[in-house]
Amino acid sequence: MSVLNAERIKLLSTRSPWWCALLAVALPVGLTALIASQAQIDPGDNGGSVQVTQMLASLGRAVVMVMAALSVTSEYRFGTIRSTFQAVPHRTTALLAKTVVTAIPAMLIGAVVGFGSWAVFRAINSFPALALDSAEDWRAVAGQIVVYGITAVLALGVGILIRQTAGAVAVLLVYALLVEGLVGLIPKIGDDIQHWLPFFAADRFLGVQAGPPIDDLPLGPWGYLAYFAAVAAVVLTAGILSAQRRDA
C-alpha cells in the first residue's frame, strides 16, 4: 500500500500529468460540444445515436497514451527510477504499483470523457436516440473507462520497454494512429492482420468507429475487449521482465 501511495504522490506532484489530463478531457469534450452545436439532425427521423457522441474519444485516448508513457520515461530521463528501485528493490512490485496508479487516473479520464461527451452533446442537442437504453449504448460510453485504463497499461508497458520519452511517444502514436490504419491497405492479407490489432480490437468493443460488421469478425465485442486487455498484459509483462533484467 505504501508503494501505491508513493507512486500516487510521484504522479500528482509534477505538472505534466495534470496538463495531460486537462487536455485529454478538454479536447474531446470541447470538440464534441462543437459538433453537437452544429448538428442538425431532423428530430423526426430519430437521428443521431449515442455512438455519435463518442467519436472524439480517440483524441483523449491518444493523450492518455502519452501521459502513461511519460509517467515512466520521465523517471528514466531524470534518473529517479534509481531512487524508485532503491526504495522498492522488488521491481515488479514497484512497476505494478505504477501501473495501478497510472491506470486509475486514465480510467477516471475515460469516465469523464465518455459521460462528459455524451452529457454535453445531449445538453446541446437532445435527441431521444441519445438515451442510454441499450447494452451497445452503455458499452460505447461506459466502455471508455475500461478502454482508457487498458490503453494506459499498454502505453506504460511500451514506456518501460523503450525507456525514452521521444521514442516511446513516437512509437505509440505512430502505431495507434497510423500503422493500424495503413495495414488495411495491404492487399489480401491486410484485413486479416488488421482484425487482430489491439486498437482495432478496442474500437470493436466500443462499437463507435465505423468498421466491418462485427458478425464478420473473429471475435465479438467482449471477446475483443478481452483480447485488447491480453495484449496490454503481454506488453506490460515484457516491460517488467526487461526492467528486472536491465540495470536501472
Partner: peptide
C-alpha cells in the same frame, strides 16, 4: 514529448 505529440496527433487524428 509535447512537440512529438502535437506533430503526430495533429496530422493523424
Amino acid at each position: 514529448a509535447g512537440a512529438i505529440s502535437i506533430l503526430l496527433i495533429w496530422p493523424l487524428l
